[in-house]
Design a protein around this nucleic acid. Structure first.
Lengths: 343, 343
DNA sequence: CTGAAAGCGCTTACAG
DNA sequence: CTGAAAGCGCTTACAG
């Protein structure tokens, strides 16, 4: 902040009776400083509450000490609330950044944006964290471009074989299997899937496939006629469930690709006089805070957002430091509540 | 980012056949540039996708072009999810920052922190946006210190007469009145208040007082024996409602100081076999996204987080530019859903 | 309207 | 272990 007179390293040097270079060495933790000298400098630093000017430091080091988080959503209805799932990652990302001594810049983007903005951010930050749901095929090209530019980034999302850059994601396939297995154990046989299940949304697709595997293991099939596209939003879930109902095919369970979809679907079910879980079991995915308060409380597949956030930052830092880093898939777990019946 | 060779203004100058100073003038929108020269420079800038180095620029200008948002919560149970109310402000704050060409740094703090962190942030940003619930009396001193330091900041919260610095808040008194009036209109007479109602939480206190005014206007009182302290969290709301029930006093309505409290209270009510709204009406405050999905959907007092976020940023920018700025109270509105009965 | 030059506050070879 | 000095990439008086 602009204050009467912000102390600089020169002031500190003066007061401590050393050169400015030595002050700098002390503050950057250089081993090339006499212990006694260091103590003297540190005392003055503390007294004046001196902080290194990050701009000067970054300029000189050619490294910013800043990470940027880009949150994008698909067509994002103007005033939309941000996907709660990503929000819960925000906390752990922030904390992880602090632990690494990095600042966190945040920026919201439309998937449709030029992403010129990204490039801009990439000049401000040492690396990018990409969060967002959206048509994967649509932004794969942008990721490619980022790679070509030499931009360091890590994204949250499906871990795919040939993807550009690194991803941290969860075991979507395994999570889908957990959902299917649970439904099966409860005696459900006709499972509907709400959510896009194509390579446009690889995470959803894997959840679909995982569920299908679980059913297949029991000699059952996930009837494609019971699949309805939906993006991760309550409204979309509601619409999808209505569409499903309109098809008139029998089903006794819904596996929603996200909690938001599940919650919307339950609303539609209730409006149509169907009881959850008596008439139909519902499983979600994510375990957003709202899931607990849904009616009935939603059984869902938990993704560890805390660990995810940390891993995202840790991985990005490795990239920045030129260390070896790789994509990872985090395990999921089933959270049994009321929406499927006796757990 | 560190790339093979990032273009600098010198490169641009060279290619455009002008001096580096002129490039700088073009990029900062100086009027002291010939239109033709400007066009030539801009062409090169576009072609190389050149961006001004923010660190160099900030260092030179002694202004960072960055705003910092400090989000603090009271004792914050380690992995707690951030208060959803603040999260919904995040989006509009980010957008408003972008509109002002400012970057947004975000940082989470414990109210108990030394806030040395703040001072640190204050060196990185031109101004601070403070968001958080917590004991006002406990952090008033910190605000005072910020003022003394000359740090520019705006906080979201109660607009109080002698507070240090500026606040943007809502008409808590008016909102409380709207809640009380609505309850009254529905025939409710014995209103309980869940939430701290002391000067430690001035926002809650005003909501309480507003409700009390509405009742008084009808010749009724807000019985203090029906008030139970609670912080803004679902668990706290649940606990408070249990405590209220344990007191054994009759009541036919609950005005919760926040939606989270209301949702927790409804859970307790249900556990005790009480129906909402038949046996007791419930009104919340905030209108967080979850309110719509509560069971029953929660009638609540809406605070315009979108406008709030924008105002927070606009006000802070005025402060930074040395313009006149002042605290403001935003109007609230009643959102009728199902938790109070016929609306 | 344009250029040459100083300087923002650091970090880091380079000498010693 | 320490200091003097160069230089990171800009912005902005100062001349012209």
């Amino acid at each position: 902040m602009r204050k009467k007179s912000k102390a600089t390293s020169v002031d500190i040097a003066h007061l401590a009776g050393v050169s400015q270079a030595t002050v700098s060495r002390v503050l950057s933790g250089s081993p090339l400083v006499n212990a006694e000298t260091r103590r003297r400098v540190e005392a003055v630093v503390r007294e004046l509450n001196y902080k290194v000017d990050r701009h000067a430091s970054s300029l000189r080091r050619q490294r910013s000490g800043t990470l940027a988080m880009l949150l994008f959503e698909d067509p994002t209805p103007d005033e939309s609330h941000i996907n709660p799932f990503f929000l819960s990652m925000l906390g752990s990302i922030t904390r992880a950044c602090a632990r690494h001594g990095q600042d966190l810049l945040i920026s919201f983007q439309q998937l449709s944006d030029d992403w010129a903005g990204d490039y801009e951010d990439s000049m401000k930050a040492d690396g990018l964290i990409l969060l967002g749901y959206g048509d994967y095929l649509a932004y794969q090209g942008k990721l490619q471009k980022l790679v070509e530019q030499g931009t360091r980034f890590v994204r949250w999302g499906a871990v795919l074989p040939d993807q550009p850059g690194l991803s941290i994601g969860c075991e979507n396939l395994g999570g889908g299997r957990q959902a299917g297995t649970h439904l099966l154990a409860l005696g459900r046989r006709r499972v509907a899937f709400l959510g896009d299940a194509s390579s446009h949304y690889p995470e959803f697709l894997d959840r679909y496939l995982g569920c299908e595997q679980a059913l297949a293991a029991a000699g059952l099939t996930l009837d494609r006629a019971l699949q309805v596209d939906a993006e991760s939003a309550e409204d979309a879930g509601h619409a999808a469930a209505c569409e499903l109902l309109a098809r008139g095919l029998p089903f006794d369970a819904i596996f929603a690709a996200s909690d938001l979809i599940a919650i919307g679907a339950m609303r539609a079910l209730a409006e149509h006089g169907l009881r959850v879980p008596e008439d139909v079991s519902v499983v979600g995915f994510d375990d957003i805070p709202m899931a607990r308060f849904a009616h009935p409380p939603l059984t869902t597949i938990f993704q560890d957002t805390k660990q995810a956030g940390e891993l995202l930052v840790d991985t990005l830092m490795k990239l920045i430091h030129g260390e070896q880093a790789h994509s990872v898939r985090l395990p999921t777990s089933l959270v049994v509540r009321k929406s499927c019946g006796a757990g």
